[in-house]
């Protein structure tokens, strides 16, 4: 059994050590895999705020992931084709600058989360799951029919977007960017969890009636958590599209939403590092087992089943010997 705080540092160091080793061993593909794990982890960290702390089982987080992806795709597409982006009343130029893309992705996915949250937070349980799924499906089908930006075929971006002072085409440098963002968001998440707002959110999940009786509005607290959650997953979407230099409707798919939930369950619901462990393991299995058999999901399913049955606190709960996220 190991203290969770030590374990958390170990996990982060592990995720950092793999690409550094790959760099010395000259295995750029391994760096890309680690980058993929970091980005999926970031997306799941976003979901974990809503799902883990707030108890909001969103089965539509791919919607924010896709919004982030398409923000990157559309802005970069207009930049690479030197065409202005027509927004009706006025038009703007595209951009290849990561910080600007991130900012737009954060704002738009946060805004989407606010609207979706307003409408779906009135429901709970299975209905909440279904409504969030329905919203994500709307985005999915819209993106398929949006021929301006590739429709079903998606949108390719030829050169990765730039970050001032860095060469983003160098795998290790791009990994660095994603890793730093992941650490930053994890730090924010940790602060949020221990803050008065986190306390209220945590209570709003467990006993909404109590939260109301002390004069707080559980709806508004959950809504804000949902917005923060959606914005973070949107940021991850922009990075994911940049990693692949490609964005397609797949990013909006319900399989993607399901994947995020699976990542969290594997790592541990509501655990700070749960998404990081889940995403790392997922990418590892996808790579190793995916090389052996096309049906590697069977093994993933088996692992998920074992965790749900025997380690309710996920891998982190299993390793720390503590089932509950909150100790």
């Amino acid at each position: 059994m190991i203290r969770e705080s030590y374990l958390n540092w170990l996990i982060l160091l592990g995720l950092l050590a793999v690409p550094i080793w790959a760099l010395t061993a000259d295995e750029p593909f391994t760096i890309t895999l680690a980058t993929r794990a970091a980005i999926l982890a970031l997306a799941a960290v976003g979901l974990n705020i809503a799902l883990g702390i707030g108890g909001l089982v969103s089965f539509g987080h791919a919607m924010f992931f896709g919004i982030g992806g398409y923000v990157m795709g559309i802005l970069a597409y207009h930049a690479q084709s030197f065409t202005p982006l027509d927004l009706g009343a006025f038009s703007i130029a595209g951009t290849k600058s990561m910080p600007i893309i991130w900012l737009v992705a954060l704002i738009l996915s946060g805004l989407a989360a606010w609207i979706v949250g307003l409408l779906s937070l009135r429901t709970g349980g299975v209905y909440f799951i279904m409504i969030t799924l329905a919203f994500a499906q709307m985005f999915f089908y819209f993106s398929i029919s949006w021929s301006t930006y590739g429709g079903e075929d998606g949108l390719s971006i030829y050169v990765r977007n730039g970050f001032p002072g860095l060469n983003t085409l160098d795998p290790i440098q791009f990994f660095g960017i994603c890793f730093v963002l992941l650490c930053l968001v994890l730090f924010l998440n940790a602060r949020l969890q221990g803050s008065p707002f986190g306390l209220a959110l945590n209570a709003a999940r467990q006993v909404p009636a109590r939260v109301e009786t002390v004069g707080l509005d559980p709806m508004r607290i959950k809504l804000l958590a949902f917005v923060i959650s959606g914005a973070i997953t949107g940021l991850a979407g922009a990075l994911f599209a940049d990693l692949n230099r490609f964005v397609s409707p797949t990013m909006f798919s319900w399989q993607m939403s399901g994947e995020f939930i699976v990542l969290i369950i594997i790592g541990g619901v509501g655990r700070l590092m749960g998404p990081v462990v889940g995403a790392s393991l997922f990418v590892l299995l996808e790579h190793w087992l995916g090389g052996l058999t096309e049906f590697w999901h069977i093994y993933l399913g088996t692992i998920l089943l074992l965790i749900v049955l025997f380690a309710r606190g996920g891998l982190i709960g299993f390793l720390t010997g503590k089932e509950g996220a909150h100790v």
Binding site: R191, L192, P196, L199, L216, I221
Partner: peptide
């Protein structure tokens, strides 16, 4: 949590 409700300022992150 009660004290937080009484303070009326839950937006502290």
């Amino acid at each position: 949590l009660g004290a937080l409700g009484a303070s009326g300022r839950p937006w502290r992150f």
